[in-house]
C-alpha cells in the first residue's frame, strides 16, 4: 500500500516538478523561441479555450474521432475477412505489407493532390493511415486463435455467428487492442500532419501558422494542447481497454504472480 502511494506520488510529482522548473527557468526569458511559460499559458487560454475552440479544436477532434472510429471498424472487418477467407488472404497479404511499409504521413501529399484540401482529404488520410495497424493486428490475432478452441467450437456445433462473435473476436481481442492503440497514435499524427500540410483550420494549421508568423507563444500553446489531447486520448483508450479486456488483464496478472 505504502509502495503504491509512493509510485503514484512519483508519477504525479515528477511532471509537476518539471512544469515548475520550466516556469521558474523561463520566467524572465527574453529568448524569442523560448517565451516564459506564463505567457504560453495565457495564450493557451486565450486561443484554445475560447476563440478557436469551436472553429479549430472541435474540428480537429471530430476528424480524429470519426477517422479513427471508421478506421477501426474497417480494419477489424477487413482483418476478419482477410484472415478467414483464403482467396482474400492470398490477394491482400502482399498489398497490406507493402502499404504498412509506407510512413503514413508520406501519403498525405497524394491525398491532397487527389482529393483536395477539404475535410474529406483529412478524414481519408486519417482512415487510410490508421487502418493498417488494426488490420494487421486483427489478421495476426485471428490466425493465432488456439486450434483447440476451434475444435471445441466445431464439436459443440457453434453457429458461424457464434464462432465469429463469441470465439474469434474475444480470442483475438488482446492483439486487436494492441493494434488499435498504435492506430490511435497514427491517427493523431496524421490528423496534425494533414492540417499542417493542407488546411487553414484545425489545431495543426493554427500551430504552423503561429510558427510562420513568429508568434512563438501561440506555437508553444498549440504544441501544449496537442500534448494534452494525445495524453488524454491514450488514457481514455487504456481505461476502455482495461474494462473490455478485464479477463485478459486479470489472467496475465495472475500468471505473473
Amino acid at each position: 500500500m505504502n509502495r503504491k502511494l509512493i509510485n503514484w506520488g512519483l508519477g504525479i510529482g515528477t511532471p509537476l516538478l518539471l512544469v515548475a522548473a520550466w516556469w521558474a527557468v523561463s520566467q524572465n526569458s527574453t529568448n524569442t523561441f523560448f517565451p516564459p511559460l506564463a505567457t504560453i499559458l495565457e495564450r493557451f487560454q486565450a486561443l484554445w479555450l475560447f476563440d478557436h475552440f469551436g472553429s479549430d479544436v472541435l474540428l480537429s477532434l471530430r476528424n480524429l474521432a470519426l477517422g479513427y472510429a471508421l478506421a477501426t471498424v474497417i480494419g477489424v472487418g477487413l482483418g476478419f475477412v482477410t484472415a478467414l477467407v483464403p482467396v482474400v488472404r492470398w490477394a491482400l497479404d502482399p498489398l497490406i505489407h507493402f502499404f504498412r511499409g509506407i510512413p503514413p504521413v508520406a501519403l498525405v501529399p497524394i491525398f491532397i493532390s487527389l482529393i483536395g484540401f477539404g475535410i474529406e482529404m483529412r478524414l481519408v488520410s486519417i482512415i487510410l493511415a490508421a487502418l493498417f495497424p488494426t488490420l494487421i493486428a486483427t489478421v495476426d490475432g485471428i490466425r493465432s486463435v488456439d486450434p483447440s478452441l476451434k475444435d471445441v467450437s466445431a464439436v459443440y456445433r457453434l453457429t458461424r455467428t457464434e464462432k465469429l462473435a463469441q470465439v474469434y473476436l474475444p480470442a483475438a481481442g488482446p492483439q486487436i487492442a494492441a493494434g488499435m492503440q498504435v492506430s490511435l497514435q497514427v491517427a493523431f499524427i496524421v490528423m496534425i500532419a494533414s492540417e499542417m500540410l493542407g488546411a487553414s483550420q484545425g489545431i495543426g494549421a493554427m500551430t504552423l501558422l503561429a510558427q510562420q508568423s513568429f508568434m512563438t507563444s501561440d506555437m508553444w500553446a498549440g504544441i501544449l494542447l496537442l500534448g494534452v489531447i494525445g495524453f488524454g486520448a491514450n488514457m481514455l483508450f487504456e481505461l476502455a481497454k482495461n474494462k473490455v479486456l478485464a479477463w485478459y488483464v486479470g489472467s496475465r496478472r495472475l500468471a505473473k504472480s
Binding site: 471445441v152 459443440y156 456445433r157 457464434e162 470465439v167 474475444p170
Partner: peptide, 27 residues
C-alpha cells in the same frame, strides 16, 4: 460431446465458468 485433454486450452478464458457451460447451449 468431447472433453479435451488440454483443459486449460479448451475453455474460453474471457467467459466465466457459467458462461463457458452455457456457450454450447445457446444455439
Amino acid at each position: 460431446a468431447l472433453v479435451f485433454q488440454d483443459y486449460s486450452r479448451s475453455l474460453m478464458p474471457w467467459l466465466t465458468v457459467r458462461k463457458n457451460v452455457r456457450l454450447p447451449l445457446r444455439h
